[in-house]
Write a protein that binds this DNA or RNA. Structure first.
Lengths: 218, 218
DNA sequence: CCAGCCCATGAACCATGGTTCATTCTTTGT
DNA sequence: ACAAAGAATGAACCATGGTTCATGGGCTGG
């Protein structure tokens, strides 16, 4: 028995791993997954290219990790709202505003997560992310229908429509010119949320401009 | 003077060009742009790889061409409906049903056009395609608002929401399991259209199951 | 302080898939 | 039939970017 990992070492290893993840995440937030090339991530993390492969078996796995970390963070936030005991309609409004609002604030990262061209394997991860979103929406819709706040609908389809409407309207190629978003993000968000609420028969929301969580995704 | 292109030759050249486009288009419709590799297109068109470059300066240009051809065809169809003198609400219903219905029938191709990961240059072309869609929607919405059929809204945003909701719900990663779409496409389309109509305050559409144009996109 | 192992290094390697180009085949006009 | 010019060929080429691996340096336990 000649070697056993000491605490100091495993701490350093953990730090390196974090460093890699942070570097990659920062790159994704700046230029999308396309910008997160292995050699670039290594440079940014201050290590050699090959070292990455001591921590992640492939670039794909690294990217998946990023995907999971970021999306888990976002999902938790939404899940928390969804789980409150407010009426369904109010929860729906808040979830939509939070989702849309945070996407606006961290637009580049949101684009990477929701829409950037990525290869098939990463797309799986994205699909999972989106599906989870949609499930949160769907569950609230179900509650609302059960309580009579909302009319009957196919909640799965409605949830997918909501997810699509928000993503596309905010960050897709159809997004309003960025200056419009920069100048008046709350207004754009409110419009989109209003569309979605009306889509599920929840009428107009009380406008609560300025209530978006300010910290950017990242 | 020793050579001048004769009619027979230029006809053959034109035929080859078409052959390339058709082969590429078929490949895209089967497996998306990813499947349309230059060598594969050539094989399918029954010519040598290099020959492609006598007709298109690059793969990108070839793909752009495909994009334009297919989308022009779809756009024309929608534009025709949009230009009719029916009331705005009716035109909206028909445009949405047509768009969604045709996307279902040519799902693979629709996916390639609307959602498949493609590189940045092709994405431009896609952006144009989407913007044109959105403009058609937006114009109808404006008409509807002007005539009092629809409540005031930001038509640009609403149009983007519509485009996003339809694409995502039908063919994106949130699309219902294919068997559901295969079994009962009209029902799914109707749900989505209903969501969009409600989103712009147009209430429920008269359901017209089975009215979708049957010919697949292609 | 030495043997043995782990960890880091980064230049070389490799796979993919678009692009080129020397060569060959066809067409044209005399 | 022949020369000039265009068209077609497809194997070689190249760029990109992920992955590997022989090497050297640092830890660990005795």
């Amino acid at each position: 028995m000649a070697y056993r990992q000491t605490d100091k070492v495993s701490a350093r290893l953990a730090a390196t791993r974090r460093g890699i993840l942070d570097a990659a995440r920062a790159l994704v937030a700046e230029g999308g997954f396309a910008a997160a090339q292995v050699s670039e991530v290594a440079r940014r993390a201050g290590i050699a290219t090959g070292t990455i492969y001591r921590y992640f078996s492939s670039k794909e796995e690294l990217c998946r990790q990023i995907f999971r970390e970021v999306s888990a963070q976002e999902m938790d936030r939404l899940a928390l709202i969804a789980a409150s005991d407010a009426p369904a309609r109010a929860r729906l409004v808040e979830v939509l505003q939070t989702f849309a609002g945070r996407a606006v604030l961290g637009r580049r990262l949101a684009y990477a997560l929701l829409a950037e061209p990525v290869d098939a394997n990463l797309a799986e991860e994205r699909a999972f992310f989106r599906r989870t979103h949609a499930e949160i929406f769907a569950r609230i819709l179900e509650d609302g229908i059960a309580s009579g706040e909302l009319p009957e609908t196919n909640v799965k389809i409605a949830a997918a429509c909501i997810a699509g409407a928000i993503s596309t309207a905010l960050i897709g190629p159809l997004a309003p010119q960025s200056h419009e978003l920069d100048e008046n993000p709350d207004r754009v968000v409110d419009e989109i949320v209003a569309f979605c609420l009306a889509g599920v028969g929840a009428g107009l929301p009380e406008r609560k401009a300025g209530k978006i969580e300010r910290r950017a995704k990242a």
